[in-house]
Nucleic acid binder design. Structure first.
Lengths: 335, 335
DNA sequence: GATAAACTTGGAACCGGTTCCACAGGCGTC
DNA sequence: GACGCCTGTGGAACCGGTTCCAAGTTTATC
């Protein structure tokens, strides 16, 4: 039987309004009364029911984060950025992990029904106009990370530019036959990062007057093992690439594995560039494209909190910088 | 201005009780009335306020997870196990990340104040009797993972046995000079896993009649870089170890790095065993002790849900099995 | 000493659900 | 036709806070 504000009021000989004012540091309470109430609160070990507060304030005091595959290193890093801001706020963090389209739809729907969350951050999932409409009519502010929608604030990195820079790095080293390993063009979640990185690669090739051999584009399920298999396919080609750009570090690790299995020296015989700069990349000395994952999470919460406070869903589009980190998996080609 | 149950009741020409009964599939409603109410709900696009439900039911419908360093691969894997069960339940998942003792204390306290969460899972953090008392008096069921308390249900792996098995594996290969790299004896969070793994190691040595050289015990801040430095210290010794057991895979990676820096061949000149079997270990062919991280999360939610439903906080102590996975970082010593 | 202004305070109404109680009406039984 | 039982329904009370309004008290002003 928990202690309520009424118990405190009766015990202190005051009204509930006064107790509430004390709880909320409202200055319109005499310091004498405040002291008395505080003592009773202490003595009865009273803690206000946060559920009742939420109902009364019509705020849920929680922020939802909707992530795909939240165990992937890049997502974890974003989550850490998000958590670091929320921990210092009055909000709680609710995590929804999505691994299937049906679960995604369910989450999109349930977060739009009123009073689940005060705000929502969606990572790497592209909502349909219909979903956006539901959130809008439920009055739930939403910020997107690593994905776009015309009417919502978005935090993105310029994947096209990232792909461009990675490729340019290889071209400047002297590579002309560059392979690509990425996600399938059409994924269940319609991810665009791998596509955009490839697009950036194509532009860089074109700008430097290089042709792209369609056989050099290999796509398969995201993951190390799949990338390993695809790499073997690339290296089986007659005029195989001297460098491979992988759409993620995880996939780059698969490339390195395949090279090792064939006894191919990296970087002497094959250069490899990844994308994300996850923690393990430094350890494995992988040349990769660094993107500010932690910061992307951080900024998304900033935007969201601002959007909640001002109910001003300015469709900001914030683009964070990327740059190539040169380590030891890239070098001039042998000849 | 959201639609409430009163709007629905008025529109359908029934009482609020009837609407509530329809919402909760209470059979004591004539099918004719039910149809009418459902139509109105559909037409007004009514979604019950989950906050109001929570207040009324006196349940928060959410489960808290309190984790230290939730970006560590081993913690992430546990979280994934937890999330997979909660996603199928009626509960929401609230994540609290702890990186400092003061944040830990704040979280311990806030989760104990009533009506924050219906249940709590604590990962790797040892609560004091005082904290346990607060949760008990607030009526919040708690399950511990990877840590112990006499009056709470706990999911643990037997770290002593894990350390024993890892060491025995090395001894059977013929190693007699085995180094250890682990966390400091006293950490801010009083982690016991590293200590226990070392304890298991000592027992294995003793059971096989081997002495342990105190200089072979190196402890430092958890992390790859620190482990790398400590490894150099071990290898600088006159009679340096032929094998090193690291208290975690992350630390084992640091050991491998130091060996590489010295041009020491693994496993020919140095055997290395890790602990956790995180995803990267398979890739790096690290011999390690596998512990069922995903399952530990899974089981903890099972126990917690049971505890919530029956309010029977049976202080179960469930111990999950561990075993050595032999890969290519261990071999017979050179001589 | 009358009046206004400022400061405190109590408590009803409200947030939006759930649940229990009372009651109406239909039906079967003796 | 008196009684009991079952089904369906309305609505008040309740969960535990916040907030607004009215009223009481004190202080300032002339």
């Amino acid at each position: 039987m928990p202690v309520t504000i009424y118990d405190v009021a009766k015990e202190a000989g005051v009204g509930v309004g006064t107790v509430s004012r004390v709880l909320n540091n409202n200055p319109r309470v005499s310091s004498e009364t405040r002291q008395r109430v505080l003592q009773v609160i202490e003595r009865l070990n009273f803690h206000p029911s946060s559920i009742a507060q939420r109902l009364s304030l019509r705020k849920t005091l929680s922020i939802g984060v909707l992530a795909v595959y939240f165990t992937r290193p890049s997502v974890v890093e974003r989550l850490r950025g998000i958590e670091s801001v929320i921990a210092d706020s009055e909000y709680d963090l609710m995590v929804y992990n999505v691994e299937t389209p049906s679960r995604r739809d369910e989450c999109f729907r349930s977060t739009a029904s009123s009073s689940r969350v005060d705000g929502l951050i969606v990572i790497s999932l592209a909502p349909a106009d219909e979903d956006v409409g539901r959130w809008a009519s439920a009055g739930v502010p939403v910020v997107l990370v690593d994905t776009l929608h015309p009417t919502l604030p978005c935090i993105i990195v310029d994947d096209i530019s990232g792909g461009y820079k990675a490729t340019e790095h290889l071209i400047k080293l002297g590579h002309t036959r560059i392979g690509f390993i990425g996600d399938p063009i059409h994924t269940a979640f319609n991810f665009r990062s791998s596509r955009d990185r490839f697009e950036g690669m194509c532009r860089a090739l074109k700008d430097h007057g290089l042709a792209f051999d369609p056989a050099f584009h290999q796509a398969g399920e995201h993951g190390r093992e799949s990338a390993r298999v695809l790499t073997h396919r690339l290296l089986d080609l007659d005029d195989s690439p001297t460098a491979i750009f992988a759409a993620s570090d995880t996939q780059a690790f698969g490339v390195l594995q395949a090279a090792k299995e064939r006894g191919i020296q990296v970087p002497q015989e094959l250069s490899v560039v990844g994308y994300d700069d996850v923690e393990m990349s430094e350890y494995l000395n992988l040349t990769t494209v660094h993107q500010p994952l932690f910061d992307s999470g951080l900024r998304s919460v900033d935007l969201l909190l601002h959007s909640i406070d001002t109910s001003d869903p300015a469709p900001v589009r914030e683009q964070l910088p990327v740059h190539v980190i040169e380590r030891s998996t890239t070098a001039r080609p042998k000849n």
